[in-house]
């Protein structure tokens, strides 16, 4: 799958200045999502400021290894999506589909790790009402979990499109739009992980 040299681009690309990759609508959607997560992060941080001992003690009981593993899985999925987009812009449909399949596998890995984490939490009777920290931990991570699921649905649609050879120079909007959403899911996790699992 490693492919560090790509053939020349089939058609001359548009060279007219800056370009936003993907549909404009997805970028407004991404901004709305970032704002929602931002409010959530601020609420977590200020609630913690009034319950520091509780937050630090319960944070210490979280599975930090699972959180780090999930960060690696999301970053790697994002990298695979970048490689898929790069393959598409060189009209390499089958490599594009393979990179997307690899990204889907990483996303699925994230969901599996998270489900093990939730199962362990529920075994210890952790629930939304068990403490302010657990309320934030469960709601923030589950809100993000739902975004990963939507991202997976989008990646599968992109994989299907790639297999049909739908993405090539001049026809990049679909894959770039889906890729932007997936990277947003990754971006949010890059704050969520240190905030909820590490910083105290």
């Amino acid at each position: 799958m490693e492919q560090d040299t790509l053939p020349a681009i089939a058609t001359p690309p548009d060279t007219t200045g800056p370009r936003l990759a993907g549909d404009l609508a997805i970028w407004f959607f991404i901004l709305a999502e970032l704002l929602a997560f931002g409010v959530f992060f601020a609420a977590y941080a200020f609630t913690r400021a009034n319950n520091i001992e509780l937050f630090d003690a319960e944070q210490a009981a979280l599975n930090r290894h699972a959180g780090a593993l999930n960060t690696v899985l999301l970053l790697t999925a994002s990298y695979f999506v970048v490689r898929a987009v790069q393959a598409a812009e060189h009209s390499l449909s089958q490599p594009c589909a393979r990179w997307l399949l690899a990204a889907i596998a990483c996303g699925a890995g994230f969901l599996v790790v998270k489900m093990f984490e939730y199962a362990a939490a529920f075994e210890h009777n952790i629930s939304l009402s068990s403490s302010p920290f657990h309320m934030f931990y469960l709601s923030l991570t589950f809100f993000h979990f739902m975004h990963v699921i939507l991202g997976m649905v989008i990646l599968v649609a992109m994989w299907n499109g790639a297999r049909q050879g739908r993405y090539r120079p001049g026809e990049m909007n679909g894959i770039e739009t889906g890729a932007a959403y997936w990277h947003m899911v990754d971006l949010v996790w890059l704050i969520l992980f240190p905030l909820v699992y590490v910083i105290h």
Partner: peptide, 21 residues
């Protein structure tokens, strides 16, 4: 330019490695 927007595979791989570190 379309190819510049998404960079090169080499750059993406290097960035991924540093993100993991």
């Amino acid at each position: 330019m379309s190819s510049d927007v998404h960079g090169t595979p080499r750059r993406a791989t290097l960035l991924w490695a540093t993100l993991i570190v």
